[in-house]
Nucleic acid binder design. Sequence first.
RNA 1: GGCGUCUUGGCCGAGUGGCUAGGCAAAGGUCUGCAAAACCUUGUACAGCGGUUCGAAUCCGCUAGACGCCUCCA
Length: 493
Amino acid sequence: MQPYQNQSIHIYNSLTGKKEVFKPIEEGYIGMYVCGPTVYSNVHLGNVRTFMSFDMIYRYFKHLGYKVRYVRNITDAGHLENDADVGEDKITKKARLEQIEPMEVVQRYTVDFHNILNTLNFLPPSIEPTATGHIIEQIELIKTIIDNGFAYVVNGSVYFDVHKFNEANEYGKLSKRKLEDLIHNTRALDGQSDKKNPQDFALWKRAEPQHIMRWPSPWSDGFPGWHLECTAMSTKYLGDNFDIHGGGMDLKFPHHECEIAQSEAAKGISPVNYWMHANMLQLNGQRMSKTTGNTVNPHELLSGNNTFFSKAYSPSVIRFFNAMSSYRSILDLTDDGLLASEKGFNRLMEAINTLETITAGTTSTFNVSEWKQKCYDAMNDDFNSPILIAHLFEAAKVVNQIKDDKASLTSEDLELLKQTMNAFTFDVLGLVNVAQADTSSEKLSGAVELLIQLRQEARANKDFALSDKIRDELAAKGIQLKDGKDGTTFSTN
RNA sequence: GGCGUCUUGGCCGAGUGGCUAGGCAAAGGUCUGCAAAACCUUGUACAGCGGUUCGAAUCCGCUAGACGCCUCCA
């Protein structure tokens, strides 16, 4: 019996606009695809937020005992910048600027991407396929779409015929757009396009001579369209119809809309049962933007080397901050918000450390099993991590009350509380107990313990000048002494 | 301009047609040689104006504002 058999998850499905009961295609197994980064520069912090939310979702599924195949791609072939593009994609443009090979750019930023995610305690996906590794699959997919009459070839490029597709299908059902509206509201293009209609999108693009990344195909030496790679890779590893497809809200249109169209045109079935979209990350109430300079990258956030925040924030604090709001809400990154999260996070960690030191009583004044189910209910309700955290704080309060002899738990309940706290805090939310790791350094704690003892003696002799000196000098070094009932402890910050 | 989302206490941030999270900050208290830290306690908010309802912050309409996509930036 797996834990998921006792839980009923509801997921907000972007396709229907409703929370729906989650039922995997195959019981006990989940196929989940999330659009990964384009590795032509440092990964965008907003992108990291999306991946962080899906990391938490992945962790929760695993916690429930599901076998999850989580596929997150690497877009290393670049994608077209716009319709008027003469065949140069983002990756080659960057490479030329830096005078290096495109695959060198890809390699550098892929490594960088992984470093950041490791630092932030992400679980690696089950498969991390690259676009360049699936050119053949993409070519095959294009052939099928052409054979089915939904794409046409012009000058060595292949375009998806949106109008033809829309005759018997519904283009726009995910983003709630109507083709007629798109037609009326599409800006006049510069007329250089080979496309029959502005709404059509490229499946294959002929490479211009200066384009370095290119592959042979039946139509031309060229490269695949951006929307195609996700369709090719998701269906290859998860099947023509799979459970969950996620990504950032900005990908809903046109990217995900085009994925649906490609799949339906090629296979005749809708590819995804549950579409999930993480909302955007803002910086001080404004959209992050390179052009206006209102942007901070993950390295700068973690190092504190930026002009937006008063200090560096630890990976767990960043994760905690993210989990304090819903993945479907716009999240505004601010110094005040991060500071508040840091304090809250530290308080939670203190309570979890205290939990290891308290002892069981003969009765329970707190219903642990009921509380435990509330934690699950929170996550079952479209992964409502803010509610989960509220429950964790409720438990933290109980722990502190037990420490003050104002509450008690039987040993069974205490054990259950420990297990549940740890499971949700560390396994599901992916937090790391930094404070504990810091103070476990033996040399440091040995030295500080000695100072604590000397200060204790000074205090006993009422030599407060010395005792305060020890306290203040340590504080200046970032070591805080905490006088409690049962002696003095310390923490580093 | 089109389509869509949102507007909650000092700040952040969940949620629900009546039982009104949580965090941060604040105030009071406990502890302490004094502090700090920690802990305890307190705090009735839902943009504005109408409407539906026994009852709305929660449903409907209008207004104002913010944001997103449509157009390179995730």
